[in-house]
Amino acid sequence: MEIKWYIFLSLVLFCIGIIGALTRRNSIIVFMCIELMLNSVNLLLVAFSKMHLTPVNAFGPAMATSAQIFVFFIMIVAAAEVSVGLAIIVMLYRNTRSIDINFLNRLKN
Protein backbone atom coordinates (compact mmCIF):
# COMPACT_ATOMS: atom_id res chain seq x y z
CA MET A 1 0.00 0.00 0.00
CA GLU A 2 1.40 3.39 -0.94
CA ILE A 3 2.02 5.98 1.73
CA LYS A 4 -0.15 8.60 0.03
CA TRP A 5 -3.44 7.02 1.01
CA TYR A 6 -2.51 7.29 4.66
CA ILE A 7 -1.45 10.90 4.13
CA PHE A 8 -4.79 11.69 2.51
CA LEU A 9 -6.75 9.91 5.22
CA SER A 10 -4.92 11.85 7.92
CA LEU A 11 -5.47 15.10 6.05
CA VAL A 12 -9.19 14.47 5.75
CA LEU A 13 -9.50 13.65 9.45
CA PHE A 14 -7.44 16.71 10.40
CA CYS A 15 -9.54 19.04 8.25
CA ILE A 16 -12.78 17.59 9.62
CA GLY A 17 -11.42 18.37 13.07
CA ILE A 18 -10.61 21.94 12.00
CA ILE A 19 -14.08 22.41 10.54
CA GLY A 20 -15.63 21.17 13.75
CA ALA A 21 -13.48 23.43 15.90
CA LEU A 22 -14.41 26.42 13.73
CA THR A 23 -18.13 25.82 13.42
CA ARG A 24 -19.32 24.42 16.73
CA ARG A 25 -19.92 26.49 19.86
CA ASN A 26 -20.24 23.70 22.37
CA SER A 27 -16.84 23.74 24.04
CA ILE A 28 -16.86 19.99 24.72
CA ILE A 29 -17.30 19.27 21.02
CA VAL A 30 -14.53 21.73 20.17
CA PHE A 31 -12.34 19.82 22.60
CA MET A 32 -13.25 16.51 20.98
CA CYS A 33 -12.34 17.94 17.58
CA ILE A 34 -8.90 18.77 18.98
CA GLU A 35 -8.58 15.15 20.08
CA LEU A 36 -9.52 14.11 16.55
CA MET A 37 -6.75 16.27 15.11
CA LEU A 38 -4.22 14.77 17.55
CA ASN A 39 -5.26 11.30 16.49
CA SER A 40 -4.89 12.06 12.80
CA VAL A 41 -1.34 13.23 13.46
CA ASN A 42 -0.67 10.03 15.40
CA LEU A 43 -1.90 7.97 12.47
CA LEU A 44 0.40 9.87 10.13
CA LEU A 45 3.40 9.33 12.41
CA VAL A 46 2.78 5.60 12.56
CA ALA A 47 2.37 5.48 8.77
CA PHE A 48 5.66 7.32 8.30
CA SER A 49 7.36 4.91 10.67
CA LYS A 50 6.66 2.18 8.13
CA MET A 51 7.97 4.22 5.22
CA HIS A 52 11.74 4.08 5.57
CA LEU A 53 13.40 1.72 7.98
CA THR A 54 16.63 3.52 8.69
CA PRO A 55 19.39 1.72 10.56
CA VAL A 56 20.41 2.53 14.12
CA ASN A 57 22.25 5.83 14.20
CA ALA A 58 24.21 7.76 16.79
CA PHE A 59 21.12 9.22 18.41
CA GLY A 60 19.75 5.95 19.60
CA PRO A 61 17.39 3.40 18.17
CA ALA A 62 16.14 3.35 14.63
CA MET A 63 14.02 6.28 13.60
CA ALA A 64 11.04 4.06 12.93
CA THR A 65 11.00 3.08 16.58
CA SER A 66 11.32 6.72 17.60
CA ALA A 67 8.24 7.60 15.57
CA GLN A 68 6.12 5.13 17.48
CA ILE A 69 7.59 6.27 20.80
CA PHE A 70 6.61 9.83 19.86
CA VAL A 71 3.05 8.66 19.29
CA PHE A 72 3.12 7.16 22.77
CA PHE A 73 4.25 10.47 24.27
CA ILE A 74 1.61 12.39 22.31
CA MET A 75 -1.00 10.13 23.87
CA ILE A 76 0.45 10.85 27.34
CA VAL A 77 0.31 14.60 26.79
CA ALA A 78 -3.22 14.34 25.38
CA ALA A 79 -4.41 12.49 28.46
CA ALA A 80 -2.93 15.13 30.77
CA GLU A 81 -4.41 17.89 28.60
CA VAL A 82 -7.88 16.36 28.67
CA SER A 83 -7.96 16.19 32.46
CA VAL A 84 -7.05 19.85 32.87
CA GLY A 85 -9.26 21.01 30.00
CA LEU A 86 -12.32 19.20 31.26
CA ALA A 87 -11.73 20.68 34.72
CA ILE A 88 -11.70 24.14 33.12
CA ILE A 89 -14.93 23.36 31.27
CA VAL A 90 -16.59 22.14 34.46
CA MET A 91 -15.50 25.34 36.23
CA LEU A 92 -16.87 27.39 33.34
CA TYR A 93 -20.18 25.57 33.57
CA ARG A 94 -20.40 26.14 37.29
CA ASN A 95 -19.80 29.85 36.94
CA THR A 96 -21.90 30.62 33.89
CA ARG A 97 -24.38 27.70 33.59
CA SER A 98 -23.38 27.36 29.97
CA ILE A 99 -20.59 25.77 27.99
CA ASP A 100 -20.70 28.21 25.13
CA ILE A 101 -17.13 28.71 24.01
CA ASN A 102 -17.62 32.48 23.76
CA PHE A 103 -17.97 32.65 27.54
CA LEU A 104 -14.39 31.49 27.95
CA ASN A 105 -13.27 35.11 27.85
CA ARG A 106 -14.74 35.46 31.34
CA LEU A 107 -11.90 33.34 32.67
CA LYS A 108 -9.74 36.41 33.11
CA ASN A 109 -11.96 37.77 35.86
Binding site: M1, E2, I3, S49, K50, T65, Q68, F72
Partner: peptide, 23 residues
Protein backbone atom coordinates in the same frame (compact mmCIF):
# COMPACT_ATOMS: atom_id res chain seq x y z
CA UNK B 1 7.98 12.14 -5.31
CA UNK B 2 7.84 10.22 -2.09
CA UNK B 3 4.06 9.85 -2.10
CA UNK B 4 4.24 6.60 -4.01
CA UNK B 5 6.67 4.87 -1.69
CA UNK B 6 5.25 1.51 -0.80
CA UNK B 7 5.06 0.91 2.92
CA UNK B 8 7.11 -1.90 4.41
CA UNK B 9 5.10 -4.83 5.58
CA UNK B 10 5.86 -7.37 8.23
CA UNK B 11 8.33 -5.39 10.31
CA UNK B 12 8.58 -5.97 14.02
CA UNK B 13 9.15 -2.39 15.19
CA UNK B 14 5.60 -1.98 16.42
CA UNK B 15 5.67 -4.94 18.74
CA UNK B 16 5.79 -4.42 22.46
CA UNK B 17 9.24 -5.94 22.83
CA UNK B 18 11.13 -3.55 20.57
CA UNK B 19 9.16 -0.50 21.73
CA UNK B 20 9.69 -1.42 25.35
CA UNK B 21 13.41 -1.82 24.83
CA UNK B 22 13.62 1.57 23.13
CA UNK B 23 11.44 3.21 25.76
Amino acid sequence: ENANVVMRAGTSIGLTESLGKAL
